[in-house]
Design a protein around this nucleic acid. Structure first.
Ligand SMILES: [Zn+2]
Ligand SMILES: [Zn+2]
Ligand SMILES: [Zn+2]
Ligand SMILES: [Zn+2]
Lengths: 132, 132
DNA sequence: CAATTGATGTAATAACATAACAGTGCCGTT
DNA sequence: AACGGCACTGTTATGTTATTACATCAATTG
């Protein structure tokens, strides 16, 4: 999935995410971009669909939110299974790659002849700073 | 988290989930229970909250849906990290326990001094029957 | 009994996501 | 230039998921 030139709306949404220090919901992005002319949720969702397709953004399922990919170098070659730690305290999200987990999930899927299309791994809890 | 006697609403919601062959959304459950007197989403969500707390039900984050736990024997002692395979074709959900993954995620979290509260692992794809 | 606690009923609203349709700009072909 | 195709955009309306707020009820307990 090579990354083509982003359109205006895609670039605006990407900008909102990269300038944020944490995940944003689609409606939060919409609010941030009202001054640039955004009026409707679809403008955000359509841009997000493309950014997800290009691998520039990840969707956090347990949060219904979106975050810029933390591995800017890997956009040309698919990046593997990603796990996220998500701090309930400060909202900080960290991206983790792990061969062992990827390998193991692949084995488990193969064992039941399951054809994996997308894997979600999200670890909710407290980061180092926020743990009591 | 010992499982106390379920209340009427909790039992009704639990029944709807166990008699279903796949995950159900909260609003689908509501519709199924209208004949038993359910009128409002909160009746479902409140029951689900308790059932989740007791470990009788799992929430599938990538589906915004709920499924009865497939391990009826393990309700007394917490069950470990669970991974789900979710077939996009037929909706079939399978529950997987795996020591290797649990161990590995625990190691990764410890490495960044992250205190894990809840882990979500969901594998979307095609089951054996639905794969082309 | 009075107070507390947990469960319930109901209405209203918030938050997240998509459908449907019209319009626009670009590019390659005729 | 005219045409058709295609991807992107704008807009309105609607659908789906989840929570807030407030009133009520029943069981427990001191
Ligand atoms: Zn990434
Ligand atoms: Zn934190
Ligand atoms: Zn289970
Ligand atoms: Zn299937």
């Amino acid at each position: 999935m090579a990354t083509p030139q982003l359109t205006k709306n895609q670039a605006l949404v990407m900008g909102a995410l990269t300038h944020s220090d944490g995940p944003l919901s689609a409606y939060t992005i919409l609010d941030k971009l009202r001054d640039q002319g955004f009026r409707a949720p679809l403008q955000v969702y359509r841009a997000l669909d493309k950014l997800l397709e290009y691998g520039l953004v990840h969707r956090l399922e347990s949060l219904n939110a979106f975050v810029a990919c933390a591995c800017p170098h890997e956009h040309e070659h698919e990046h593997g299974v990603t796990a996220f730690t998500i701090c309930e305290g400060c909202g900080q999200v960290t991206e983790l790659q792990d061969e062992v987990i990827e390998e193991r999930l692949s084995t488990l899927a193969r064992a039941q002849e399951f054809k994996t299309e997308k894997t979600t791994i999200e670890i909710r809890g407290q980061c180092k700073s926020c743990a009591i």
